[in-house]
Design a binder for these strands. Structure first.
Lengths: 343, 343
DNA sequence: AATATTTTTGTAAACGCTTCCAAATCCGCG
DNA sequence: CGCGGATTTGGAAGCGTTTACAAAAATATT
């Protein structure tokens, strides 16, 4: 009986109804777990459904009911596994709630981003998960005014209070910097992410705060503005290392830039961690497979996906759930890329 | 006018029709580029559509027309960037054809796989892209008998001829093995993937063929059956290295197992490539960032996504396009993980 | 100028479901 | 036994399209 749903094509509630000797309204009620059905009738209908291999037509259901049971997710790309992890988290929750996932990648094109959001919000999906959005200012206002449910992942929101889940970026950067300081480092290079992203700013601030707390003067000479990309990480690290008095440690604002920094260090003929310590941020899967394994600040990516999805589903169920921003804790993962400075 | 579509919520063809002074049928015809509309009328309707910010309701359209303009993609996971690359390729094509993408991850649970396929084929999507399917036998027959359009990516199909795109696995493995042989290696370890996947078998066969062509005796002692996972790659490599006469090179059937092998080599206190050469397969993004950069057989993943999508779209447009299987060429990417054996 | 032909437009009937309202059935109790 | 209220069921209407068919308008033909 299992695969009969694949075999028989177009069973409708009408066929189920006539087979079970009830009206189609009753079948619909059973399908929607309406309480107003006699237990015995429900049983009979469910059996018929199984026998006939009936599967509800989602299009019809959403036309009639106004809900699609699809949620959309907008991501910048799928390159690094960073997004992949988040999606796994989202997926788990969605599966439980039996929602479907519509995936859109923007490749960081703001135009696309706004367009997608426009047409999605038009009824294609019930809610939206926006991962690492680049220019949400363009549309968040509109989504809000239309009361369209959405949750931001890894973005601070934009002044207005929107539902969002992020991580304690500041604290993570603070802890990582402090770890390096406690190892004895005082000249710690820092490579930022896109500074238009709140997370990148927070990480820089955490770094500064840790220096400050340990009475180490902050200097712009040790900071390089970058883009979260590996190659830029490489270039910035190179630049940092070419200074008259180079840093003894480099803290990159994400893991792939840390990988780039590692390349730079090696190209200068120096060793990690003996000559230079490296710290990353994110703890993407590759961080533990690279050699030496990267010490990094772990973001609970999967968990962020879980939580964001739960928030969105809650929002769908109960639209006036108060808006909240959740920050999941980050944690320092100590591996092999750091040690006290030489001498 | 740009964002009016976001502002106004429920414009239907009826409103457009009355605004434009035509019947709703005509609007529908304009929407579907039906030729039977006077040019002037078409213009007027299109203007109204723009003015009102009308957007077609996809649910209604597919209920009536039978097509969803959504294609489904079934992937095992999103962990390694391998799938991510393929998805990028798919996405590009889909964007051009303005189809939407529904993503399902199976985590390699055969049950899920079959269930998904069942309900998807039920009308949720117009076609299916099956990436690296594990047990397609369970449902390919049924899909075929229902004439449901699908394309396999990175799978050999199952005897029957189904549309599929793959890569020249045999040739790639042959070339990589030959490369090692030409460097002077004669004891070349080989770590397989899941042997229930055709691609894995082909790679093993390519390896064997190259040995044979160069009169190097094949021995099971140098082959380990594995699973495409990093940890298993590590274990198999360890096992290989612990033999009385260990290999001087290891060829892993994919990159992440090669990463695992690298870990094993290092743990044995040996260096890459000085003591042991390593070759992978796939050329996922990480292969070039790991240190030493991995010599590997490049699969044109993005391209495979492109081609598969084009095939599927063609199949949708013209259901009796003859079935074909396309094999895209692989190529050896020489980086830093190999050198001639010592001594 | 009248008819035949073609092009364009209007309309009704699906598509498969949800949901509301009214009708039927059931139950307990006087 | 009959009545009121609660529970259960049936059926109509509507969701926003597409599409087949018929009607109307435009054009060509004699």
């Amino acid at each position: 009986m299992k695969s009969s749903s694949l075999v028989s094509n177009n069973v409708t509630i009408f066929e189920v109804a006539s087979q079970a000797g009830v009206s189609y309204g009753t079948v619909s009620r059973v399908l929607n777990q309406d309480q107003h059905v006699k237990a015995e009738t429900r049983e009979r209908v469910m059996k018929t459904i199984r026998d006939l291999g009936y599967v509800v037509n989602r299009q019809a259901r959403s036309l009639a009911g106004g809900k699609t049971h699809i949620i959309g997710i907008l991501v910048p790309d799928l390159g690094t596994g960073y997004i992949g992890e988040i999606i796994q988290g989202i997926n788990t929750e969605l599966q439980i709630a039996s929602y479907d996932l519509m995936l859109y990648t923007t490749h960081r094109t703001p135009v696309l981003e706004a367009d997608y959001v426009a047409s999605l919000a038009q009824g294609m999906v019930d809610g939206l998960l926006l991962v690492l959005p680049r220019n949400p200012e363009d549309y968040i206002g509109i989504l809000n005014s239309r009361h369209f449910p959405f949750v931001l992942i890894d973005h601070q929101g934009i002044g207005q209070n929107c539902p969002a889940v992020g991580a304690t970026n500041w604290q993570g950067a603070y802890n990582a910097t402090e770890y390096l300081i406690q190892l004895g480092h005082t000249r710690i290079g820092f490579i930022t992410g896109w500074m238009d992203l709140g997370a990148a700013v927070d990480r820089l601030e955490g770094y500064k705060a840790a220096l400050w707390a340990h009475h180490i003067p902050f200097t712009e000479d040790l900071v390089r503005q970058s883009t979260f990309h590996q190659l830029d990480g490489y270039n910035c690290a190179m630049d940092l290392l070419n200074q008259p008095v180079p840093p003894t440690a480099i803290f990159a604002s994400n893991d792939v830039m840390a990988f780039g920094a590692m390349d730079a260090v090696r190209e200068k003929g120096q060793r990690i961690p003996e000559d230079i310590s490296i710290v990353g941020f994110d703890d993407i899967p590759q961080a533990s497979i690279i050699h030496p394994a990267l010490t990094t600040v772990r973001q609970p990516l999967r968990n962020m996906g879980n939580v964001a999805t739960q928030m969105l589903l809650e929002l769908l169920k109960n639209p006036d759930t108060p808006t909240k921003r959740i920050e999941l804790p980050t944690g320092l993962v100590v591996r092999d890329s750091c040690q006290p400075p030489r001498g």
